[in-house]
Design a protein around this nucleic acid. Structure first.
Lengths: 341, 341
DNA sequence: GCGCAAAATGTAAGCCGTTGCATTAAGTTA
DNA sequence: TAACTTAATGCAACGGCTTACATTTTGCGC
């Protein structure tokens, strides 16, 4: 049997404390406007009654919620975790609450979640990447809710962005791979449709290959959802092909973890028989064996900067300055010259 | 420059369609009450104006939001990811939206987040574990918002729970370890203060030790936050002690991953020189080498059942039936008899 | 002790939906 | 066609808070 005492309202507090609702409201929102002893008394009553402002009412009256929403593709792996954590810490320090929801990499669900978050009064939105339908852009525009795209830098995107250049980052890694003499590159990419990060990374590899003067068909790409098991399957597929690659570049560390697992199970030695690389440099990369060559992404810095940029959009209505972050290649044990040379 | 057209309201729609606000509201919420041609006209206007109901106003008027909140200790590792994903899927199928926030294992922040979510109108709450102050319990009671504790089953907890018995689960694993002949057990636990799961797991180990007739001081416990790096440090600490343990049991797979990493770096061979175990059986466990002996937790099932239980509390006001899920020990390469016997 | 500016507090008008109840339109039956 | 039932719609109160503006207190200089 749940309690029947109804939740106390501003009015209850005001009555009990013997002041007007306006004063109570001010005690909560701009305490400096209320004289010490009044404030103290009111806050006491607030505490005593266990009063919490009704959010809906507040949002309606004030038109802001001190809430930031984020829609990320997945919570299932750690790709976004660290950046999001930093993002949240920064927001919290400024009195904002972060609400997260995930889209399972489904544009339809993403749109739903965006609407849900905006409807719930989010003052600003953090989204991942730039691939999004016209509808969404229009909706955001119309609602006038500032939104920022992260994990991917795009000069001319529909949204201002804080992120890195996925294409160049992967290109740099591919150049290292090619410099070692690899000539047949297998690529395990995430699903590129609706995912600009994944697409750009593949492009980066092709850039490097072209830059090295190799033929396009040196590269074999397999697309699969980001997931360890899928990475393992894709690796097996690549290794069973007629022309085994000597290096397998993965779209992220999770896929690479799967590739390494499959290699171990197939008795393929990394890096002697085949090299494997990842992308993201999540903590996972360091505990694999061999440890994973990958691209380091400054997740925490990205989260922090994204928060700052979004805050400034929300608070000062600025149009949001984009920020391009640097990544760097992390050479580790999983990459070597072909044939163990 | 953002758009100035203000967001259309119910009133705008009503005016444009030439009906009352009540009729528009009914078109949206109980269409069967409105005659076909009126409904059609209204919905057309809704679409044309791009109208979205104001959530705050709706929540205030209707007193429900079709939103469920979850406060989890961390998003940084995958411990809660899979279960939460299943939880969300189940909710979504029933027309509910899930909003997640994280507490960084800080009770203070957890309380803040609970309030934030309830204030935002969450119809129900998913919390992790049972350690929570009196204040929180009272608050939840007073607000009359149903809440469910997951990841930990407790018959007599303040909240109904869907989860497993952390103590027995770990005890079962410890019994396997002891059966192999280990007599000095190192334990790397998460911080037990405010974390009943961590505490119960340590208790489970002690139960097993006592059950095997060994002295209490066979067990050395180190507490550290859940994190790969901390797991590594703790492992080093344990191995540098006078009486090296022959088996190190970790509070979860993440700590165990750190332990394995440290072992590799220290040149300690697992399982020959020392055995290592984890808890949770997250995907990580399968890609480590040696692969990790751990306790398998049915994450997806737990998420699904939690959603069902919470939904029934929210929708029918039932008091919430608790559910105890089964776990099982997963024996893998990281555990062997002491001294490689 | 008076007059006045500044500080503190109060008053009341929204904000945008939902819904109980009243009213009107439509449909049925004799 | 009158009388009456039922379906469709409208009216308006209400929910809890913020804030512009009005009013009362306080503090200070003379």
């Amino acid at each position: 049997m749940t309690s029947n005492r109804s939740v106390p309202t501003l009015y209850d507090v005001a009555k009990t404390a013997g002041v007007s609702t306006a004063t109570v409201s001010r005690c909560l929102n701009s305490p400096e406007q209320v004289v010490e002893h009044t404030r103290k008394r009111v806050l006491e009553v607030v505490h005593q009654l266990g009063y919490t402002p009704n959010f809906g009412a507040r949002a309606m009256a004030a038109k802001r919620t001190y809430t930031i929403g984020a829609v990320i593709p997945t919570m299932e792996n750690a790709i976004f975790a660290r950046g999001l954590q930093a993002f949240q810490e920064e927001l919290r320090a400024r009195g904002y609450t972060l609400l997260v929801s995930s889209s399972a990499y489904d544009p339809q669900i993403e749109e739903e979640q965006i609407r849900a978050l905006i409807a719930r009064g989010a003052d600003g939105l953090l989204l991942i990447g730039h691939d999004r339908t016209e509808t969404v852009a229009e909706y955001l525009e119309k609602q006038g809710t500032p939104a920022l795209a992260a994990w991917s830098f795009e000069e001319k995107g529909a949204l201002p962005s804080v992120g890195f250049d996925n294409r160049r980052a992967m290109q740099a890694l591919a150049e290292e791979v090619l410099a070692l003499g690899h000539q047949r590159i297998g690529v395990i990419s995430g699903i590129t449709s609706g995912n600009d990060r994944a697409r750009r990374r593949v492009e980066g590899i092709r850039d490097a290959v072209a830059g090295a003067g190799l033929a396009e068909n040196c590269v074999t790409v397999v697309e699969t959802p980001y997931d360890i098991a899928n990475g393992a399957d894709a690796f097996a597929t690549l290794m069973h092909a007629a022309d085994r690659p000597t290096a397998v570049m993965c779209g992220n560390d999770v896929l690479a973890a799967g590739a390494l697992k499959a290699a171990r199970e197939m008795g393929v030695c990394v890096p002697h028989d085949v090299s494997v690389t990842g992308f993201d440099d999540i903590e996972l990369a360091g505990i694999l064996s061999p440890s994973l060559t990958t691209v380091h992404v400054p997740h925490r810095e990205m989260g922090r900067k994204a928060a700052q940029a979004l805050m400034s959009m929300v608070q000062h209505g600025t149009s949001g300055k984009t920020a391009l972050l640097e990544t760097h290649v992390c050479l580790r044990g999983s990459l070597a010259a072909p044939g163990g040379l």
